[in-house]
Amino acid sequence: MAESLSYTEKLKKWNRFEVEKFSKKAPVTTPYPFIDIEKPPEYRGIPHINPEKCIGCGACVNACPPDALILEWDKKRGVKRLTFNAARCIRCHRCVEVCPTGAMEPTNIFEIATDNKEDLVEVVEHKLAYCEECGEYLDFTERQIEYVKAILPKEIIDMYALEDRIGLTQEAKMRKTVEKLRETEGNAYPAFILVKKGGEE
């Protein structure tokens, strides 16, 4: 049954167990650490990165006020690393708001005390896209490129010939443009012509 309820219905149904106690005027305190306390569904707890959905775009990193999320590139290994440190998190859920794929998942966990700091850190590593042309890694992850391909309309992809060009580094792209121009309608590009002519003369 629970799945059939809408989110709003769920919110309506949720009740704090202390509220009932409160009306009875018995002791209103709870022996807290010895019982489990459930936070309401609206509560902004520690978020969590779903590595299956994450594409490594870094939108969350740009939005995060306390630098709890950090992005690092390791071009040698071809890896982009997204690190989430719950100890720095201020639980504002800005990352949840800005995530384009819903990979930042909100939870209502509030007890994050631990005796090992490393328990608080989540690391997601993404493979960087590899440029076949120049043998270098791009700034983007493979998933980012897939995502771009998936969301852009067909016409735009065709218009900019993204199908072949998206997986290239900036330099490779420029080189390719030059080559293409040279092949097809070279004289339509004045600057190119000037350079070329100068070279010849």
Binding site: V19, F22, K39, E42, Y43, R44, C92, H93
Partner: peptide, 18 residues
């Protein structure tokens, strides 16, 4: 306390509403 509970449900946190 009930006010804190209320704002927790309205905003997502007891304090520092964000």
């Amino acid at each position: 306390e009930p006010v804190m509970w209320l704002v927790e449900r309205l905003t997502g946190n007891r304090k520092q509403y964000g």
